Computed example of a mutant assay.
Amino acid sequence: MSQMAVINTYELNEKLEAGEKLELVDVREHDEVAMGMIPGAKHIPMGEIPANLAHFDKDKEYIMICRSGSRSAYVCEFLQAQGYKVRNMTGGMLEWRGKTE
């Protein structure tokens, strides 16, 4: 298994504040995202990822987000095995200090 790429909440916030265009995917459940998501993130619950592979582009890198970073790590492993470029946001929304919407 190749090493999983990660990004921490601080690094991600810096990139967003610098205006970088990133592909963010929040894999939490509906009731969790109701409490706030990182602006610009797409919401696809973890269980719906396999049915939504058509929404992913193998030429782009996706940053996966969940509450603590563990569910998003599973999603990263799954997508990486399908040939997608992914990065896990470690610490998840529990450690996120940036803006939410």
Rank of each mutant, 00 (worst) to 15 (best):
N88L: 04
Q3M: 12
S72L: 05
H43E: 07
I44D: 04
L12V: 13
C66K: 03
N52K: 11
L79H: 03
R97L: 14
K99I: 03
K60T: 13
V25L: 08
R71G: 02
M93Q: 04
R97M: 15
R97E: 15
G98H: 14
H55R: 14
G19C: 03
C76Q: 01
I49T: 06
H55G: 13
T90A: 06
G40N: 02
G36K: 06
Y84K: 02
Q80V: 12
I7R: 00
G98Q: 14
E20H: 08
G40Q: 01
H43K: 10
N13M: 14
S70H: 15
M35D: 12
E23F: 08
F78W: 10
L53H: 07
V75W: 01
A54G: 12
S70N: 14
E32G: 04
I38P: 00
L22A: 04
E48N: 13
F78K: 07
D57T: 09
H43R: 08
G19T: 04
Y10H: 15
I49G: 01
L16Y: 05
K85N: 03
M46S: 07
M35R: 13
K15S: 15
W96Y: 15
V86H: 00
F78G: 05
M37E: 07
M89A: 09
A81E: 12
L16N: 02
E61H: 04
T100E: 08
L94P: 02
L16S: 03
R67Q: 11
M46F: 12
R67P: 00
V27N: 00
L12N: 08
E17G: 11
L22D: 02
G92Q: 02
V25H: 01
A34Y: 14
E11V: 11
V86S: 00
S70G: 13
F56Y: 10
E11Y: 08
Y74E: 14
F78N: 06
E77W: 11
M64N: 04
N52G: 08
G19A: 06
K85T: 00
G69L: 00
R87H: 05
N8T: 10
R67W: 07
G47R: 09
R97T: 15
E77H: 13
K99G: 06
T90E: 06
A34W: 13
I65F: 09
E61F: 03
V75H: 00
I49F: 05
M4V: 13
C66L: 10
L94W: 05
M37V: 09
A81F: 08
M93W: 03
A5E: 11
N8Y: 09
M37H: 10
E61D: 06
S70F: 15
Y62D: 00
Q80T: 11
D59F: 10
H30F: 06
G92T: 02
E95Q: 14
I38S: 00
A73R: 07
K85L: 01
E101R: 14
M35T: 12
S2E: 15
D57R: 09
I65C: 08
Y84L: 04
F56K: 06
G83A: 04
C76I: 01
N88P: 03
G47Q: 06
